[in-house]
Structure formats: structure tokens, C-alpha cells
Amino acid sequence: MFGRGMRLLAGAMAVACLVLVGPSAPSGAVSGRALPVTAVREAVPNRVMTWNICNPCNVSNVGRAAEIAAYAPQVIGFQEACVRDVERIREYLERLHGLVYHVEYGTVLQNWGRCGGLPWSPGAFGQAVLSAAPMTDRAGAEYPDGGSEDRGYMAVTTTVGGRSVRVFNTHLAQRRQEDVRADQVGVLAAEVARYDRAVVLGDFNAVPDAPELAPMWELAADADPGCRPSPVGACEPTTDWQSKFDYVFLRGMTPLEHSVKSTSYSDHHLVRADLDLT
């Protein structure tokens, strides 16, 4: 009887702990509950997004996933992305929001300080693309000169709005490195020019009328219809310091709707565009 009583008491205490603490999950997400297997949502088929998710910023990947799920884009490009963070965001999008994405990486840096891991096995850092449709023909390159930190671009072919689209994702050199960015834009623009229909996502670290962005403006228009490479253009800021650094450049298609949403999870805003590919 004594042994049975102790087992009952231990069981009761375990239940009480679960009630107080909640189910466990990675990254401290104790309140997240997985959706039923059948609760799969469809992404908005003609919606693309770009987001510099800020690193290192020590913020919740559960929260990042929730911000993305509110818009359910077909394609999203991340910059300043650690592979481990992207894996968790992708997991939470599926488990908590029913959104299933494929992933491709364009990492250019192995950095223990930014992305954790062990000094002899650091995490990978750079860009990533999530797409609700499969991706093919992944390509990517590190720019010959990254400036103060290695930088590069990646590209994939996927489906947006029912059409095959080449999607580029990039992160250019940091501010006050105009000459470096000019060389990087030259490399990127030469690749984009090969495609009649392309979306170029990224953090360009330059305002719209910066001279180094001229080759991109010659090839494509920004999804923000009021934004042009002119000091008088009505470009909506995309950063906490009220500058437009983040772009959705469109080649061979036009925007239907555009929005910029500030977020507590990054110093860059989340930029979204719905596209007309007809």
C-alpha cells in the first residue's frame, strides 16, 4: 500500500507541474501547441516578402514565425539568417500555423559568435529562401569583395502566382561602403538581366537614390509604387532609423499591393508585395 500511495503521489505531482509550466518546446516556446496534421494552410500564391531578421538579436523564433504567418507569403527571403534559426522558424510555421515551406540557403559565413555552435563547428550565416512551392536550379555566390563582412547573393527558380519565377535574395555591404556595394550590384545585376521575369529581394543597405543602385533601377522597379530613385520619391522607410534599405525589385511583373510592417523582432521591417504576373 505504501508503494502504491507513493506512486499515486508522484503522478499527481507530475500533472501539477505540467499545468503550472506547460508543455515544453525549443527556444522556450512553452505555450505553443502543434496543430492537427490536417490543419494545413495555403500560402497566398502571388505574395512575396523580404526580411532582414536581425542577428544577433536574441529574439524569439516563435514570434518571428507568427509575424510571417500573419501574411502567409508564397516566398520569403531572409537576410542575416543563421541556419539554426531558419530551421526553427520553418518548424514553427508548420507546427503552429499549418504553413509548409521548402528551404534553400545562401550562407556565406561560418560564425560561432553570430550563429552559435562550437568554435570548431560554427553555425552558417547568410541568406535563406522559404517557398511554399518546390525550388530548383539553386545558385549562389559570395561577392568578390564583401566589405567589412562576407556578403553574397542566392537565386532559385520557383512558382509565384502560378508562374515560374527566378527569385534572387541578397545582402549588400554595410553602410558607408558605397564603392563596395557598387561592385556587388554590378555582379547581381548581370545575373538578374539574364531573366525576363525575376523578383529580387534583399537588404541593399542603400537609400533609393544612392548611385550604386542605378544598375538595379535600370533593370527593375520596386514593388512600392511610389518609390523611385529620386530624392522626391515617396519611399516608405523599412528600418527603425527611418531609411529605406529593403527592396522587392520586380522584373517582368507589376505589384498589386505593397506594405511595410514594423516589428519588435528586428530593426528592419517586414516588406510584403502581392504581384500581378499576367
Rank of each mutant, 00 (worst) to 15 (best):
V108L: 04
L96G: 09
A39L: 02
P208C: 02
G106P: 01
V260G: 02
R47W: 01
H258N: 13
A29Y: 03
S230E: 12
A141D: 15
G152S: 09
C227T: 11
R47P: 05
V37M: 02
S259C: 07
C82L: 01
P237K: 11
G106V: 02
E104N: 06
A29P: 04
V207C: 06
T50H: 04
Y195R: 04
A12W: 07
G126E: 01
W241G: 06
Y105L: 14
R7T: 14
A34H: 03
A69E: 09
K261C: 08
D196A: 14
N205F: 03
M216G: 04
P73V: 06
Y265E: 14
N111E: 11
V21G: 00
V160P: 09
E191H: 14
R151H: 13
D137G: 14
E257L: 09
A214D: 03
L270T: 02
L118R: 15
R272M: 07
N169F: 00
V200I: 12
D179F: 05
R175T: 13
A198H: 09
A155G: 14
F204E: 03
T158M: 04
S266R: 04
N52Y: 02
S60G: 08
P215E: 07
D222A: 11
Q74W: 03
R114Q: 09
L275R: 07
P122Q: 07
R4I: 15
S121N: 15
V30G: 06
E42S: 15
Y92S: 13
V19G: 08
L213C: 04
N61W: 02
P231R: 09
R84G: 11
D222G: 05
L256N: 11
G98R: 09
S164G: 11
V108G: 06
T238C: 05
V185R: 07
R114W: 10
G146I: 08
A43S: 14
T239A: 03
A12E: 05
L20A: 14
L99Y: 05
G186M: 06
P23W: 02
V165Q: 09
C17H: 10
F245Q: 12
T107R: 05
A81Q: 05
Y105W: 10
V187S: 03
L9A: 14
R175S: 15
A193G: 10
L99I: 12
V260N: 03
F245I: 12
